[in-house]
Design a protein around this nucleic acid. Structure first.
Length: 404
RNA sequence: GCCGAGAUGGUGUAGCGGUUAGCACAAGGGCCUGUGGAGCCCUUGGCUCGGGUUCGAAUCCCGAUCUCGGCCCCA
C-alpha cells in the first residue's frame, strides 16, 4: 500500500541529492561538449515505439502500454532514442548535425532483479546527420568525460563493429541472430557455457577463437576479413585525443536488429555495464528520410548504485534562542539565500536544544544562532557543527563568513 | 511469462502452535525556557494481504502481492 509500484524506488534526501548531483555533473559535461537538450513526453504512441528494429507487437511484453480513454494505444518510452528518431524524422528543418542530449526517466516492463528496475534514468547524447566516425567518438568521449567527473576511472569502453562480426560469423552459419544472442552472454555465463550453447548451432571452436581475440586492434583486424575494419581503426586512432579507454572486443554484440555498425559498451568491471550505444543508421529511415545517426547512453541508476558515498551538501540552519526572534530568522535566511547559501530556519517553534538536535540529525554543517544579546550588537553566533567551535560574527559579514 | 529464497513497528531483528509479540536504533516529548551528536524517563507505532487446518496461527498449508537472486528478454 505504502510502497511504490513494483520495480520502482523512492529516493529520499541523501539518495535524491546523490542522484541529482550525478545528473548535474553529466548535464554539465554534455553542455560543455556542445550538446543541447530535448525534453520529450514520457508517453509516446505505441506505433512509434514498436517501429524500432521491426520488433512490432512483441515489444508489448517488455514495455508499459495501455489504451487511453479514446482507445489510442499509448506506451511509456523505454529509451530516449526512439523519441529522437521520431523528432529527427518530423523535423527535416532542424540544422544538421543534430547534437542533442536527454536526461530522464525511462520505463521497462522487466522483472526486477540485480541492477534492473522498471523505472530508471538514462542520460543520452546523440548526433544525427553525420556518418563520420568523428560523430561516434564525440559521443563516446562525452560519456567518458562525464563518468570521470562523477569520479569513476576504472571503466573500459568495449568496442566492436556489427558489420565485421556479422560477416565473420556468417562464414560459419547463417543463423547469425542466434549466435549473437549466445555470445552476448559471455560475461554472464562464461566461456565454457557459451561454447556448449554454440556447439548446437555452428562450429563452436571457430566462433570461440574469433570472439576471444584480444590485443591491439591492428593485429586482430589483420587476421580477419570483412567489412567494418576501417571504422574501428579510425575510431581507435581518435580515442587518444579524448582519453577514451577503448578495447576492441569481438564478443560485444548489443542488441539484435538495432545497431548497424560501431557498437560500444561501458564496462565497469564485474559484469556491470554503465551504459552503451552505437551507430543506428537505419532507424530514422523507418519514420522518414533515412539518415545516419549515432549515440551513447549512461545508465544513471546503475552509476548511482555503484557510487557508495553520498554527496556532501553545505546546508545551514538558522536557530533562535527565543520564538520571539523567529521573524528575525526569516530576514537572516533571506540575506543568506540571496547570497546563494542554502539555509533554513525553525518552523516548528521548538526550543534551542531541539533546534540543535534537528540541525545535527539532518546534517547541517553550520548553525547560526540568533540570540537577544548578540542581536542588540548586530551580531550572531556561528557554530561549526563538525568541530563544535563557535564564533561571533556581525550580521553584515554573515554571508562571507559562511561562504567557505 | 518461468524457477528459487524470503517478508514481524520507519530501519535492523527476537519469537517458530497458547507470549501483555521482546530488543536496539530512528521518530515525538520530558529531565534542561541560550547550545546537537552522552545519559535517564515517557509516548507513538508491528506480525504483507486473502483463504484454510486447529479449541487456539506471527508460527502449519494454499493462493496473491512485494523484495532479492536466476531464466527468458534486454530496445
Amino acid at each position: 500500500m505504502l510502497k511504490p509500484p513494483k520495480g520502482m524506488t523512492d529516493y529520499l534526501f541523501e539518495d535524491a541529492e546523490k542522484l541529482e548531483w550525478i545528473m548535474e555533473r553529466i548535464r554539465n559535461v554534455f553542455i560543455r561538449f556542445g550538446f543541447r537538450p530535448f525534453v520529450t513526453p514520457a508517453l509516446e504512441r505505441f506505433e512509434v515505439l514498436s517501429a524500432k528494429g521491426g520488433l512490432g507487437e512483441a515489444v508489448k511484453d517488455e514495455i508499459y502500454w495501455f489504451e487511453d480513454k479514446s482507445g489510442r494505444e499509448i506506451a511509456l518510452r523505454f529509451d530516449h532514442t526512439m523519441p529522437l528518431a521520431r523528432i529527427a524524422a518530423a523535423h527535416p528543418d532542424l540544422k544538421r548535425p543534430i547534437r542533442r542530449y536527454c536526461i530522464g526517466r525511462v520505463w521497462r516492463y522487466d522483472n526486477p532483479q540485480r541492477m534492473r528496475k522498471r523505472e530508471f534514468w538514462q542520460a543520452d547524447v546523440d548526433i544525427v546527420g553525420s556518418e563520420s566516425v568523428f560523430a561516434d567518438v564525440e559521443c563516446v568521449g562525452a560519456v567518458c568525460q562525464a563518468l570521470r567527473e562523477i569520479g569513476f576511472s576504472g571503466f573500459r569502453v568495449r568496442v566492436n563493429n556489427r558489420k565485421l562480426i556479422e560477416s565473420a560469423v556468417r562464414v560459419f552459419t547463417d543463423d547469425v541472430r542466434t549466435v549473437f544472442r549466445i555470445i552476448d552472454k559471455l560475461d554472464k555465463i562464461g566461456p565454457e557455457k557459451v561454447r556448449d550453447e554454440l556447439s548446437g548451432v555452428c562450429n563452436a571452436e571457430s566462433v570461440m577463437r574469433l570472439i576471444s581475440l584480444r590485443g591491439e586492434p591492428e593485429k586482430i583486424l589483420s587476421q580477419l576479413k570483412g567489412e567494418g575494419k576501417q571504422e574501428i581503426l579510425e575510431f581507435f586512432s581518435l580515442c587518444r585525443r579524448y582519453d577514451i579507454p577503448a578495447v576492441l572486443d569481438l564478443s560485444l554484440v548489443r542488441g539484435l536488429e538495432y545497431y548497424t555498425s560501431l557498437v560500444f559498451e561501458i564496462d565497469a568491471g564485474e559484469g556491470v555495464s554503465f551504459g552503451g550505444g552505437g551507430r543506428y543508421d537505419s532507424l530514422i529511415g523507418i519514420f522518414g528520410r533515412p539518415e545516419p545517426a549515432t549515440g551513447m547512453s549512461i545508465g544513471v541508476t546503475r552509476v548511482f548504485e555503484a557510487l557508495k558515498d553520498s554527496v556532501e551538501r553545505r546546508r545551514i540552519f538558522v536557530a533562535v534562542t527565543d520564538t520571539e526572534l523567529a521573524e528575525k530568522a526569516i530576514d537572516v535566511c533571506a540575506k543568506l539565500r540571496s547570497a546563494g547559501i542554502p539555509c533554513e530556519y525553525e518552523v516548528c517553534g521548538r526550543n534551542l536544544k531541539k533546534q540543535m538536535e534537528y540541525a545535527d540529525r539532518t546534517g547541517a554543517c553550520t548553525v547560526v544562532i540568533l540570540g537577544k544579546k548578540e542581536l542588540e550588537k548586530g551580531q550572531a553566533v556561528v557554530r561549526n557543527m563538525i568541530n563544535g567551535k563557535e564564533s561571533t560574527v556581525s550580521l553584515d559579514d554573515l554571508p562571507n563568513a559562511l561562504q567557505e
